[in-house]
């Protein structure tokens, strides 16, 4: 992992490295969010996940989320790393760290970041279930779409 605040990586995510990126003397709080691979989704068993990204645009969109957060919570600093490739159960898919002088902004900005990731960052998850495989295509995360009938959501 590099010093870039916004990254797409193929290797396992080290949360401490992301915390380090946002550490500052003026910070009184650092919140972290760690998104992990879940085994069971509504009774279906996941064996492993595969994430694909349009990497250059995904990095740009992560940076855009950083800019949005800079406007909404001016004293925060955020780092986001998303992993792609094959991930096994319990592995970290995404990690977000936000530092801020006071905790409220750090909590709020962190939640905002994960919601925006699910809206505008070109990353796709393929579920490899115990009984088949599906590209997941709904920004609310859990609803697979049949090929040819994805939902269109506005990103602007």
């Amino acid at each position: 992992m590099s010093n870039n605040l916004f990254e797409i990586v193929e290797e396992p995510i080290e949360i401490n490295a992301i915390i380090k990126k946002v550490e500052r003397r003026e910070a009184g709080a650092i919140t972290t969010f760690i998104g992990t691979v879940r085994e069971w989704t509504r009774g279906k068993q996941t064996i492993y996940l595969e994430y694909q990204a349009y990497i250059p645009m995904a990095v740009k969109m992560l940076a855009k989320i950083g800019e949005e957060i800079g406007e909404k919570w001016p004293d925060t600093k955020i780092g986001i790393t998303h992993r792609i490739g094959r991930l096994d159960i319990s592995e970290i898919a995404v990690a977000i760290a936000v530092s801020s002088p006071h905790r409220k902004a750090a909590y709020e900005a962190n939640e905002y970041a994960i919601e925006r990731i699910k809206q505008i960052v070109p990353i796709w998850k393929k579920e490899h279930w115990s009984d088949g495989e599906t590209w997941i295509g709904d920004q609310l995360e859990n609803v697979p779409y049949e090929s040819g009938r994805p939902n269109v959501k506005d990103v602007e």
């Binding site: 998104g35 994430y51 990204a53 349009y54 250059p56 645009m57 995904a58 740009k60 998303h82 898919a93 995404v94 994960i114 990731i117 699910k118 809206q119 505008i120 960052v121 070109p122 990353i123 796709w124 998850k125 590209w135 997941i136 295509g137 709904d138 920004q139 995360e141 779409y145 994805p150 939902n151 269109v152 959501k153 990103v155 602007e156």
Partner: peptide, 30 residues
């Protein structure tokens, strides 16, 4: 959705030789 040169674009956006167009199915990162 469509992206032209890594920015989201509309159906009436122009695409010119040399551009990179990406079709972006609903995303599912996180």
């Amino acid at each position: 959705m469509t992206a032209v040169n890594e920015e989201f674009a509309r159906d009436n956006s122009k695409v010119t030789a040399g551009d990179i167009v990406a079709f972006i199915p609903p995303v599912s990162g996180g």
